[in-house]
Design a protein around this nucleic acid. Structure first.
Length: 713
DNA sequence: TAGGGTTTT
């Protein structure tokens, strides 16, 4: 499209950090004076005009009404807590207000990638710049920032990574921690580090600001943590949602859910229905019941279109919840917690809430995780309810009694007190924190959990006898994988099998890569996997991952890759991620190789293995090298020596550490086989104790790989 | 012969 030529000289005015900067142009569009830039004048004008059209909408946001009062508070205190419900505009507007008042960069952290990207994109439009210029974002695999970027939206994990490189965060003059109420491990860690920064490292820097933003009313906790920081409330902009409870508690949540869906469908006027259930199994059951009975329902009511939604669902099927349906149809979305925060579906007017969710609880004293179905919190119930009132007034049907509701805990339990905290503890060690037990924990994970983490790190040689971080620990802290897998990578590098191990570690770093096939396809897919992965069939699941990786990598067209993935019940999207992670791991390994080689050459440890098949310096993926499964599995033993079990005559297995019985999970290629000893990546307790991602090992490898951990043999 | 909520470097 031809552009209109501007004839008269003109000026573009931009406000940066409260300073008005004018840029003067001659009639032919050449810049004659003003600030330096790379844009064509037409582009910048377009962006500024777009921003102007957005201003009216911004002024209607609740946060705009209280702007002056809010900014007064934020400027007067080093730490503030801001409570703002959904729709208040806090995440988009407050950082922009702040940009005009303070000098220096502002970081805004988000628990999720998509949120960081979407917010940065939106705010760039409002500000009138391209993403990555004045306003940008940083998430894993994607950095849209420049030297000019003053406002940076980023994931929690990214800010923590920056903290590891610059513990003073000297680049920033303000950090805004958004969605703090979600209390993820990473958010909790950031809040602890910020407190430390304020009390110790930057205690004299009066210009450094911290703003904690939360959507629920649990502000007191944050305020108390930051020395009674003032709290500011902003109203939200959700529509009213009526709540209904059951008169009596029910046992069968699936039956209750199906009945409620049918009733809502018959009695309520138009609008889609969003149902919250704890897990995939419940969702699949309800979906299939609805498919069966939908044709038999009365014609007057809309036709039900059941749509499952959970993380392990292939992306194409997930996207179906956004499709439009015909006028006489009604979408009934059956979802896990994913629809509570991560996925927002337009058109929902009714919510049916089972009041349940699943959580993974780490038992540090046993070194295993359990998966539990538990009641949600009041905060979570209110969040689910709010999903019905985003566009119009709605209704929420709670499949529990009002009395049950009253008994729910106020807030969701912070993740950090029920998780493995080996990595958080390593981070603290890396940042020089000696007294882990009395650190600035927003929620202290507890003495026994902390000691268990320290012991794990010691066993991985990440900590010395005196509890100080070792060179190895420093490397593990930097690698973008768990410390256990980090130890594996470093060992693999010494054994000269790094390339292969990086392939496997990348596979293990992706969730839901190997899907659990629907029961009717189960036998076919299991047989296909065994037939495809002949070495995996013998040596186990880690070797299987390498075989799958090789085949995927050797297929050239994406269409063929997709078909192949489907035939084996593996995730295509997951494998795409595997390749990105593989590349990132490889870059990290390369960068630490230079420093490390120097030391090793003198130590002489295992140099016999460091021979011509050493592939540690090459980024290239190798699919043709013969697989040295022994060295590969021994590398894994370095990180998972405690996850081993010995085969008993009765075909059961006993763990090496505690002697407890453990079974090979039926999803494993080694399921049903008789093996002397096994190593597993994960120990989960559901119906009974299961080992997942299992490999066959030899008992004498145990003593060889970790003499100092297995004194009792 | 099990099954698995959600994030992220």
């Amino acid at each position: 499209m031809p552009r209109k030529t501007v004839q008269k000289p003109f000026t573009i005015t931009v406000i940066v950090q409260g300073t008005v900067i004018k840029d003067n142009y001659s009639g032919d569009g050449k810049r004659v004076s003003g600030f330096r830039r790379n844009y064509k004048h037409a582009d910048i004008l377009k962006l500024k005009m777009k921003a102007r059209t957005l201003l009216d909408g911004r002024k209607k946001l609740p946060v705009f009404k209280v702007k002056d009062e809010l900014m007064k508070q934020l400027m007067e205190h080093r730490v503030s807590v801001v409570i703002g419900e959904t729709g208040s505009g806090k995440s988009t507007q407050i950082p922009q207000f702040l940009m005009k008042q303070i000098k220096g960069k502002i970081a805004v952290t988000q628990p999720r990638r998509v949120a960081a990207i979407n917010l940065a994109t939106r705010v760039s439009e409002e500000f009138g710049c391209d993403v990555g210029r004045d306003v940008g974002y940083a998430v894993r695999f994607n950095n849209a920032t420049s030297y000019k970027t003053m406002l940076k939206y980023m994931t929690d994990g990214m800010l923590l990574r920056e903290m590891m490189l610059d513990p003073l965060l000297s680049d920033y003059s303000a950090v805004i921690v958004d969605e703090a109420h979600e209390r993820t491990i990473l958010t909790d860690m950031i809040l602890g580090f910020l407190k430390e920064l304020l009390v110790r490292k930057r205690k004299d820097d009066k210009n450094f600001r911290v703003i904690v933003m939360s959507a629920t009313l649990d502000a007191d906790k944050f305020s108390a943590f930051f020395n009674k920081a003032p709290i500011f409330f902003i109203e939200g902009r959700l529509f009213h949602v009526d709540r209904y409870y059951l008169p009596h508690s029910v046992d069968d949540i699936i039956d209750s859910m199906v009945k409620s869906i049918i009733q809502v469908n018959q009695e309520q006027t138009k609008g889609d229905v969003l149902c919250f259930l704890p897990g995939q199994e419940d969702i699949d059951k309800v979906t299939s019941i609805l498919h069966q009975i939908a044709p038999a329902l009365p014609r007057e009511a809309p036709m039900i279109v059941p749509l499952p939604l959970y993380a392990a669902l292939p992306p194409q099927q997930q996207l179906k919840v956004f499709d439009k349906v015909k006028p006489h149809q009604r979408k009934v979305i059956l979802s896990t917690n994913i629809a509570e925060t991560s996925v927002t579906i337009p058109g929902v007017r009714y919510v049916i809430d089972s009041g349940l969710r699943k959580i993974k609880v780490w038992r540090h004293e046993l070194g295993l995780s359990t998966l539990l179905t538990v009641p949600i919190s009041k905060a979570s119930a209110s969040q689910r309810t709010g999903r019905a009132g985003r566009e119009a007034p709605g209704k929420c049907f709670r499949l529990y009694t009002e009395n049950d509701y009253i008994k729910l805990s106020q807030n969701t339990e912070p993740e950090i007190i029920r998780s493995e905290i080996v990595y958080p503890v390593l981070m603290l060690k890396r940042l020089g924190v000696d007294d882990i037990l009395n650190w600035f924990w927003l929620e202290n994970p507890g003495r026994s959990a902390l000691i268990a983490a320290l012991q794990q790190l010691y066993a991985l040689n990440a900590l010395s006898d005196s509890g100080k971080i070792t060179d190895l620990g420093e490397q593990m802290a930097v690698l973008p994988v768990t410390p256990h897998l980090g130890a594996v990578l470093i060992q693999a590098s010494k054994f000269g099998v790094l390339s292969t191990v990086m392939d496997i570690v990348a596979c293990l770093s992706v969730d839901n890569l190997i899907l659990t096939p629907p029961s009717e396809q189960r036998d076919v897919i299991n047989a296909k996997r065994r037939e495809t992965c002949t070495l995996g069939d013998r040596y186990g699941d880690l070797v299987m991952l390498k075989e799958l990786f090789n085949i995927y990598n050797d297929i050239s067209s994406s269409d063929e890759r997709r078909i192949w993935c489907k035939s084996l019940g593996v995730s295509y999207k997951g494998f795409k991620n595997v390749l990105r992670i593989r590349k990132q791991i490889s870059q990290y390994m390369d960068s630490m190789d230079g420093r490390k080689n120097e030391k090793e050459r003198h130590s002489g440890v295992e140099d016999g293995n460091k021979s011509k098949n050493d592939d540690s310096n090459e980024d290239e993926i190798k699919t043709s090298v013969p697989l040295n499964y022994e060295l590969v599995l021994k590398s894994f033993l370095k990180g998972f020596i405690t996850n081993t079990a010995i085969g008993m005559p009765d075909r059961s297995y006993r763990t090496v550490t505690s002697g407890d019985t453990i079974s090979i999970h039926p999803s494993s290629l080694l399921f049903g086989k008789k093996i002397d000893a096994v190593m597993y990546i994960e120990h989960v307790y559901t119906m009974k104790g299961y080992a997942r991602n299992v490999s066959a090992i030899k008992t004498d490898w145990l003593r060889e790989m970790a003499p100092h951990c297995l004194d009792r043999g």
